[in-house]
Structures are given as structure tokens and as C-alpha cells.
Simulated scan of single mutants.
Amino acid sequence: MTQQLFHLSATDFVFPPCHFALKDPDGLLAVGGCLSTARLRRAYQQGIFPWFNEREPIMWWAPSERGIMELDEFHISRSLKKSVRKLAPDVTINTAFEQVITACRQQRVDKEGTWINKAMLKAYIQGHKEGFVHSVEVWQQGALIGGLYGVMLNGVFCGESMFYRTPDASKLAMWALVNWLKRHEAHFIDCQLENPYLLSLGAKVISRKEFLAKLRLASHYQVPETMWHPQPLRAIYD
């Protein structure tokens, strides 16, 4: 059967079903469209995410295998517990979003290049202003040492990127996120693509079919109104 790559309209936000994604490259579902927040909302609700480099067209993905983190399966190592005691970090949410996403971008530009291009940066900052893109910040003595950001429209937190300036600071951000989601009885974290770093923290890989089934269950979850108000996360590692 010949595979078809879908080209999105600039004027509507309709995506093809995820099972139409290409096998090579795995998960490429569509190109084009725009990065409006309305389109981003529709994409994440259907298990689709954008991923492309600066000089490429917008590409939308729904890979055949998905990395996820079950909240009860996050791995807390001895070294991570030691880092909490050593760093005595302060953790906040949504108090420094633009600093976090900019640091995520810069860390990857410096190392291997980044998909957090200028268009993505603008789109997710707007999503943050509209209340569905969020950040977790880790501080030490007033300095931002790590953090992460992602999208939450229902019971799933869709992780986008993280950074660190001190060893283990991004892990501490993930640990804080896991505990915050647990407090609010959320479902799981969508890690999108697997990598050794996330697997070491307890992430696992499931099929697209299983992922979409879990996403449908999570779609009934109502995000509490005050969950993502800018605030310090007290006793988040207890």
C-alpha cells in the first residue's frame, strides 16, 4: 500500500488519524499548516506533536512507539536523594516560563542543534500566556539551575524539553513534576520519544495504539483551575 503524506491547510485545524503516519520516517503524519495555539491544542488532544528544525517545513508526528512515564514508576535513585539534600532546591511552577524555554533552546543549540526554533519559541510562549503550556523551575539560592516545560490539556502532561545548569537539576524538575501530578491525580507524562536519559528515570515505551487508548481515558480529566497558578511547590520531595 502506498503511503501518503498529508499536507495541512492553513485555514483549518483538521489532522488525519494517527494510524496514517508514515513508517519511514516513522511517525511523520503531516506537514504544513501553522503553529497557532488553536492548532497546537487540537494536535496534542489527538496525540500529535510538532517537531522540525529551523529551515524545515512544520512537521507533525505520531510515532508508532511512544515514550511515557507512569507516575508510580518514576525512579528515585540514591544519588537523586543526595542531590536534594545537597542542593536544598526551591521549586516553583510557571514563575519563569520564558527563562526555562530559552534555556532549553540554548542548551541544545550549544550541544547538537535544536527543534526549539524561533517559530516554536513564539508558539509555546503564546500557549503559556493562554494557560495550557507550563514550566517547572528549580532554584538554588535565587539562581535558576534547571527546569522543564510542556503542555497539559487533560490528564496527560506532554513533556517538551528540560535543561540543567547543575548536575541532577533537570531530574529534580521531573521528580517535582511527577509529585505535583500525583497530588492532582493526573494520569501520566507523555515523553514523546524514548531516550536513555528518560528510560533511566523510569520511562517506558508503548505502542501508538496503547498510547491513544490511554490518551482517550485521560481526556475526561479536568485540569484543576488553580493547579498551574504561579506558585512555590512546598515539600514537593516529601
Rank of each mutant, 00 (worst) to 15 (best):
P63S: 05
Q192W: 07
Q231Y: 01
V223L: 10
V156S: 06
Y149T: 03
V223I: 14
P25M: 10
G27R: 01
G146T: 07
W115E: 00
G67V: 02
K129Q: 15
I145W: 11
E130D: 10
R55N: 14
I125R: 14
P232M: 10
L233H: 07
F20M: 11
M174G: 02
K81G: 02
E65V: 10
L198W: 01
F6T: 13
H7P: 00
L199R: 14
L199K: 13
F6I: 11
R105N: 07
A43E: 01
G147Y: 01
N179F: 04
Y164L: 11
V100Q: 00
D168F: 11
D90I: 10
Q99N: 09
V31Y: 03
G202H: 04
D190Y: 03
R42Q: 11
V84C: 12
F13P: 00
H19I: 07
G67T: 04
L148Q: 04
L8E: 04
V151D: 10
V223R: 09
F6A: 15
G142C: 09
E98S: 14
L199G: 07
F6M: 08
L35T: 06
A169V: 10
C34V: 04
V14C: 08
M152I: 04
T2M: 11
W180N: 02
A30P: 00
M120L: 12
S64K: 09
H184D: 07
V138R: 03
P89M: 11
E160W: 00
V133D: 02
G113P: 00
V109Q: 12
P230L: 05
S83E: 12
R234G: 03
W175F: 15
Q222H: 12
G142W: 08
P196I: 07
L71R: 01
F20S: 10
K122P: 00
G159A: 15
W51V: 02
H75I: 13
R234T: 13
F13I: 13
R42H: 05
R108I: 03
I145L: 10
L22M: 12
V109K: 06
P16R: 03
W60D: 06
K23G: 12
F211L: 08
Q141C: 10
R41Q: 15
H7Y: 10
K23N: 15
S207V: 07
T102C: 09
L233I: 11
R105S: 09
V84R: 14
I93E: 05
Q99M: 07
P57L: 06
C34T: 13
Q231M: 05
R208D: 03
L29V: 05
G155M: 06
Q140P: 01
Q106C: 08
S9Q: 05
G146L: 03
C18E: 00
L212E: 15
V136H: 00
Y164D: 08
P17H: 05
L233D: 08
E73T: 13
A186M: 12
P25F: 08
P57M: 06
W228H: 02
T166D: 06
I93D: 02
V178W: 01
V109M: 13
I68G: 04
E56F: 05
C104S: 03
E225K: 12
S207Q: 11
G113D: 00
N179P: 01
A218H: 13
M152E: 15
D24P: 01
Q106A: 13
E70P: 06
S79H: 13
W139F: 02
Q46D: 12
L148R: 06
S9N: 11
F49T: 03
A186P: 01
S207T: 15
